Computed example of a mutant assay.
Amino acid sequence: MSIRAVASKDFLDARRARIVWFVGIHYTLLIVLFFLQVRLDGAEGPPDLLVALWNMVFVGAVFVPAIALVAAYLAIAGERESGSIKRLLSTPISRRDVVLGKYVSRAGIVAASLLLGFVVASMLAVAWFDSFPAAALARIAALTTLYALSYVAVAIGISAATATRSRAMVGALGFYFATNLVTLNDDVSGLAGIEYVLNDVFELGIGREPIQFVGMLTNPTRAYLVSTIGVFPEDLVGRMDLPAPDDLSWYVQPEVAVVILGIWLLVPVLLGVKRFERADVS
């Protein structure tokens, strides 16, 4: 068997996981609601589709990781706990093929669940707004998909490193809480803690941008939000109280954030392969 065979079999099994589609449909419904809000607010003037797209980014930052983690955190750990992984490994297939095949399968499921939201957003943009910035929407869809696949990679890495469902669940929930829910409030985020220790306790006087770069490296949600800044014009970025790319150092530019998301897509899977190859599944 090969990576392709593992992915094909897993896709047919995993696509019946209703909770993935349940979360994906709710993501689409939230997009509709935010688009509708902007449409109704446009009663006093032309509705701004770019504002609706920014709302779509914010919704994605919260819900896309949930879709990805739910879809993938039991991909390997669930089979290890049930014992079915032994039958899979008894065939001519390597542990590396198992991890990579599971990743390909779950990444495909997540991408398919997000596709519905992107299609609906495109239809609403054409129906409700005077202009249709197809390039901006396509870039947001691409960045959101890359963001989702980075969380799939994290979930697969966690699943490959744990032997039970409960441990995989704790790992996935802990990662989501640390990199997403806490991130939404800068006052209690990990970066706020780092800034407090470095500048208030040790009085090192480190600037905001180096700390932001650390946040991008250690948190795919921050990398995603920074990557999307380059999609929007400067006037909207200013209205959203976000820094313009021209005002940022090179290492916190949207393009750098995209590269960091690509690293998040690869590294957790590779670490999962190494950990699973050493795991005792007997």
Score class of each variant (00 low, 15 high):
Ser113Thr: 12
Glu79Ile: 11
Phe22Val: 12
Val170Met: 12
Glu44His: 10
Val226Phe: 10
Gly193Met: 12
Ile263Phe: 14
Asn185His: 11
Leu236Met: 04
Arg15Leu: 04
Val154Arg: 07
Leu88Tyr: 08
Ala155Arg: 00
Val119Gln: 05
Pro133Lys: 01
Trp128Asp: 01
Ala121Cys: 01
Leu30Asp: 05
Asp200Cys: 07
Ser227Ala: 15
His26Leu: 13
Ala160Asp: 06
Ala125Thr: 05
Gly42Tyr: 03
Glu195Tyr: 14
Leu30Asn: 09
Ser94Leu: 11
Val188Ser: 11
Val273Ile: 14
Asn55Val: 08
Leu36Lys: 13
Leu50Ile: 06
Ser84Gly: 05
Gly174Phe: 00
Arg239Glu: 15
Tyr224Pro: 00
Gly272Cys: 11
Asp41Asn: 15
Ile93Val: 15
Gly24Asn: 03
Val231Lys: 03
Ala127Val: 15
Leu184Ile: 11
Gly108Val: 02
Leu29Gln: 04
Ala121Thr: 04
Gly42Val: 08
Ile85Trp: 09
Ala136Ser: 13
Val51Arg: 15
Pro245Cys: 11
Ser8Pro: 00
Ile229Lys: 11
Leu89Gln: 02
Ser94His: 06
Leu143Glu: 07
Tyr251His: 03
Leu49Phe: 05
Gly42Thr: 05
Leu49Ile: 15
Trp264His: 13
Trp264Lys: 04
Ala138Met: 01
Val99Lys: 09
Ser2Glu: 06
Pro243His: 10
Leu266Ile: 15
Gly262Ala: 13
Val281Ser: 09
Ala223Phe: 06
Val281Glu: 10
Leu236Asn: 01
Pro47Gln: 02
Met240Trp: 10
Leu181Ala: 12
Glu44Lys: 11
Ala136Trp: 00
Ile263Glu: 03
Glu234Ala: 15
Gly190Glu: 12
Leu49Met: 05
Ala5Ser: 12
Glu209Ile: 10
Gln37His: 13
Tyr151Asn: 02
Phe232Trp: 02
Gly262Trp: 08
Val273Leu: 12
Val258Asp: 03
Glu195Lys: 15
Ile76Leu: 10
Ala111Asn: 00
Ala136Leu: 03
Val99Phe: 10
Tyr147Arg: 05
Val104His: 04
Arg16Lys: 13
Leu30Lys: 08
Val104Met: 09
Arg18Cys: 01
Leu114Gly: 02
Val259Trp: 09
Glu79Tyr: 06
Ala192Pro: 02
Leu100Asp: 01
